[in-house]
Design a protein around this nucleic acid. Structure first.
Lengths: 116, 116
DNA sequence: CATATATTCAACCCATTAGTTGAATTAACG
DNA sequence: CGTTAATTCAACTAATGGGTTGAATATATG
């Protein structure tokens, strides 16, 4: 279940791929343009790009002998939802812990208000 | 660079680990409690838990022979920031594309307003 | 103490990943 | 047409990941 989150997170787990994504924010680019900043073979970059493509984060338009790659951030929405849900959950827990501590230490035995 | 994002995303890339995190939201649990829902050996779960721990997502308190595990969502904040930044960027791009299309198709040659 | 319980450790297996190099493919260009 | 350029393919290596099993290590407990 949630195959696509698997691929999205796996794609993001590699620093080279995150750097490629970052580069793509400035606009579409060919494979060799994308490869230029890295000390890696073109084949290695080609593989990374395929991983990004497999995660739906990259779209490729072949124009002659050049492959023009562009970002597609759509799949990141699910990843963002997933993570922010936990962050919210966590903040809420910390909030209620805080109110609990405030209410129980200064005025012990008193009923605590609910957080937020 | 950003070793910790590496580990966070790598930890999230596995469905078993995401399920473990989800379980941990209901509160602390021992290793065997966490393992119960899965059709996996305890050793396998133990490994997954160590990955989560390595990513800082799990805290362990050894109480006698039991290891009580609890969630720590703190590292997810960076992951959430990372992903939502892209999502925002993407929405903005789509927005400006939309306004561009609206303004150029109905009233061609007219200056377009900036998005948002 | 002897035994059962909770968990990890160690050694393995198999699949996948990240990288390399050299050849193949396809397209552009004088 | 022949050469150069952009990219992938194929084969290989080394490391990592996810899983297993059986033994080891503590810790409870009758």
């Amino acid at each position: 279940m949630n195959h696509s989150l698997d691929r999205t997170f796996a794609a993001l787990a590699d620093p080279t791929r995150r750097a490629l994504l970052s580069q793509l924010r400035t606009g579409a680019a060919t494979v060799s343009e994308l490869a230029a900043p890295f000390d890696l073979s073109l084949a290695a970059i080609s593989k990374h790009l395929r991983v990004l493509e497999g995660a739906g984060l990259l779209q490729r338009e072949v124009r002659g002998r050049e492959h023009h790659c562009s970002l597609d951030a759509t799949p990141l929405a699910a990843a963002a939802d997933f993570t922010t849900e936990y962050v919210r959950f966590w903040e809420d827990r910390l909030d209620s812990l805080e109110t609990y501590l405030r209410n129980s230490s200064s005025k012990p035995r008193k009923k605590r208000r609910s957080a937020r």
